[in-house]
Amino acid sequence: MEQFWKTKSLEQMSEAEWESLCDGCGKCCMAKLEDEDTGEIHWTSVACRLFDAGTCRCSDYAHRLDRVRDCVRLTPQNVQNLSWLPATCAYRLVAAEEDLPSWHPLVSGRPESVHEAGVSMRGRIAAQEDELDEPAQYIPYILEEEP
């Protein structure tokens, strides 16, 4: 398999190549809280209302930007500036000219490898955002560290 992520910049990738960089971990679909004073990101186990906890994918990916007000479309221009992307995010790694981990489906050749490595949010969702009304309700779901 051609390792296009090693030879192409994010801007040079086809749409299919770009989409295949997503490892399916689901971390970007979790609610995150930012400390206004420090800028520190606090990860939660609260999923977007469109998140499918079984597949770790968006249940309406094609229409997510229309259906979820604060959904962010990742682009080659913004991935380096989104402090809430997980350290393991392939978009972030490729932008920094780092290699993909061995569990990434493009490296392993298997979509389940991200889940088998314990890197995904599969089995770790405690609530969905449409179940919570107030920002304070997210606090009990804060994780001790980045998942």
Score class of each variant (00 low, 15 high):
Ala16Leu: 08
Glu131His: 10
Gln12Tyr: 09
Ile41Gln: 09
Trp103Cys: 15
Thr55Leu: 13
Glu2Ala: 06
Met13Ala: 09
Phe51Gln: 11
Ala117Ser: 12
Asp130Ser: 11
Gln3Asp: 05
Cys22Gln: 14
Met30Cys: 10
Ser108Met: 03
Cys89Gly: 03
Ser120Lys: 08
Ile142Thr: 05
Leu132Phe: 03
Ala62Ser: 15
Gly123Val: 08
Asp23Asn: 02
Lys8Gly: 03
Leu65Phe: 12
Ala47Lys: 10
His63Gly: 02
Tyr91Ser: 06
Arg57Pro: 04
Cys22Trp: 01
Asp130Met: 04
Arg67Lys: 15
Ala117Val: 02
Val68Lys: 02
Gly54Arg: 12
Gly123Pro: 11
Arg122Leu: 13
Glu36Ile: 15
Asn81Tyr: 11
Ala96Asp: 13
Arg110Tyr: 14
Asp35His: 13
His63Ile: 00
Ser45Leu: 05
Arg122Trp: 09
Met30Pro: 03
Cys48Lys: 08
Cys28Leu: 02
Ala126Gly: 07
Pro76Thr: 13
Leu21Met: 02
Met13Phe: 13
Lys32Pro: 07
Lys32Gly: 06
Cys89Gln: 01
Leu74Cys: 02
Glu2Met: 09
Glu144Ile: 08
Asp133Ser: 14
Pro111Ser: 11
Gln80Ala: 15
Glu40Val: 07
Ala31Met: 14
Cys29Ser: 15
Leu132Ala: 00
Trp5Ser: 02
Glu17Phe: 05
Asp99Gln: 10
Cys48Pro: 09
Tyr91Gln: 01
Ala136His: 05
Ser120Thr: 11
Phe51Cys: 10
Gly109Gln: 10
Cys71Ile: 06
Ser102Pro: 01
Val119Asp: 00
Glu11Ile: 12
